[in-house]
Nucleic acid binder design. Structure first.
Length: 477
DNA sequence: ATGTTC
């Protein structure tokens, strides 16, 4: 382990104040010995840098899928006080409200016939890849609806049922959305992309529930052994990316204007109560709403395909839950001995509210919220539940996925997409993508093990394992 | 992640 970092538990490491100059709070991250071998020094330095930012409270945190990112580490969690704190696009990420949802079906694994046809059907129904264009023709008013209302916009347009709304974190809508802070350019990029999957690690996957670890929670979540579920992983597409780009330059100027001194310009930020900070927050919230609507539309196409291919009634396919990975939100947490309202930044981290926490549908009040952790291509995904330990130690947060260990560029050079596709096919996993090139940089082996990351959060108690889902067929962007 | 180097 790096000089100056101390181990304080089997899976827990402390970055003391003074590790880098100007730290206001200590840092804390969670890793197993196996994951510690791949830890990047740069990511720990980023975690320490975040601890220097104005108004940070508690600790600067990172989950076991920590890796180097723009300004903040991916896997990072940081909370800021409302009076002295800041908001930073680097703490949210470029893909605002990248997230995952899980759709359950009544279908059992042995009833999943015509798998190839199904995946082709879905591939046609869900536009995929960089610059993927929607079949929806949105009006300006519709885009405004997406930005303001999120999931409920999509449901009210006919792309879902009412129960879907409450099965999203924060009911799929940040009410602070300010469409006026979303530039024309961002709107132009977002307009043709609603209901599209995108590229990179975004996917739509047909999965089978292979193991249940927590019977009671699995029952509450509506999952059972052998069940077919569908996982959808995507974000806010070009719109969120453009919002991030636009506001980064505004906040770089604001950092100087408000005399905020930072160890890295990628941490550009502004006071939460400043006009610049509020504008970014409003634009980010609008982008988050766009992403929720986007996942809702994709889920609608998926349900229609399942209905057409297997005759499953639309309403018998339930949204288990929808979680956000890249977002900043106002939440109430206990810091030290007092309960306070803070702005929690989660960048590549998942909210993991425990039993009795606010914002949970009544079905999940006693289990804690479902936490959905996607695996990388060809590897298992996990369903977990939030815990009170997460509420106490990580502002109600846990990991978000596997964490990359090889860059996209490196992977494209070293890995053949065709070979990956063929070797997965030998394991019975169909991969459908716009090109083999799109498969190479998401190959198994360019990511850490999702199972190991999940094991750590389970052992530490930041969330508890409920079920393992194995891939059967996947659409990659 | 991303009209994958405005």
């Amino acid at each position: 382990m790096l000089q100056g970092i101390s181990r304080i538990g089997p899976y827990e490491w402390e970055v003391p104040i003074g590790f880098v100059p100007g730290m206001r709070v200590p840092g804390r991250f969670f890793l197993s010995d196996a994951l510690a071998e791949d830890l990047e020094a740069g990511a720990v330095q980023q975690l320490a840098h975040v601890a220097t930012m104005p108004g940070i409270v508690g600790r600067s945190l990172a989950m076991p899928d920590i890796h180097w990112g723009y300004g903040f580490p991916i896997g990072g969690v940081a909370a800021f006080s409302l009076d002295e704190g800041v908001i930073s696009p680097g703490g949210v990420g470029f893909d605002i409200n990248c997230g995952v949802r899980l759709l359950s079906t009544p279908l059992k694994e042995d009833e999943l016939v015509k798998k190839r046809e199904l995946i082709e059907h879905l591939f046609k129904a869900v536009p995929t890849g960089v610059g993927g264009k929607s079949t929806l023709r949105l009006s300006g008013r519709s885009l405004e609806g997406m930005l303001l209302e999120g999931s409920s916009w999509a449901v009210h347009q006919g792309y879902g049922v009412d129960e879907d709304i409450i099965m999203c974190e924060q009911a799929g809508c940040m009410k602070e959305a300010d469409p006026a802070a979303v530039s024309q350019k961002a709107r132009q990029r977002g307009m043709p992309q609603s209901g599209t999957l995108g590229s990179g690690n975004h996917f739509l996957e047909i999965q089978a529930v292979r193991e249940i670890y927590d019977t009671e929670a699995a029952r509450a979540f509506g999952v059972f052994p052998g069940q077919i579920c569908i996982m959808i992983h995507c974000g806010s597409r070009g719109l969120g990316h453009q919002v991030c780009t636009d506001h980064l330059s505004i906040l770089e100027a604001a950092t100087r204007k408000y005399h905020i001194s930072l160890p890295d310009r990628q941490l550009a930020c502004a006071p939460l109560d400043s006009p610049e900070g509020k504008a970014y927050f409003g634009a980010m919230a609008a982008s988050a709403n766009y992403a929720w609507a986007n996942r809702q539309v994709i889920m609608h196409y998926t349900r229609k395909a399942m209905e057409e291919m297997y005759g499953i009634p639309y309403k018998e396919m339930h949204l288990v839950y929808d979680v956000a990975h890249n977002v900043a939100k106002f939440e109430e947490h206990v810091v030290g001995s007092s309960r306070m309202r803070v702005c929690v930044h989660r960048k590549g981290a998942t909210r993991a509210y425990g039993p009795g926490a606010p914002d949970l549908p009544s079905e999940y009040a006693s289990t804690g919220q479902p936490v959905i952790i996607p695996g990388s291509m060809g590897s298992p995904s996990f369903l977990l539940r939030g815990t009170s330990a997460a509420m106490d130690t990580t502002f109600g947060s846990t990991c978000h996925g596997a964490g990359r260990i090889m860059s996209r560029t490196q992977a494209k050079k070293r890995v053949s997409g065709k070979e990956v596709r063929e070797s997965l096919a030998q394991r019975g996993i169909i991969v459908r993508a716009p090109s083999d090139m799109a498969i190479a940089d998401e190959a198994p082996g360019v990511y850490k093990s999702s199972a190991e990351v999940v094991r750590v959060v389970h052992e530490v108690g930041l969330s508890r394992m409920v079920a393992r889902l194995e891939p059967l067929a996947v659409i990659k962007g």
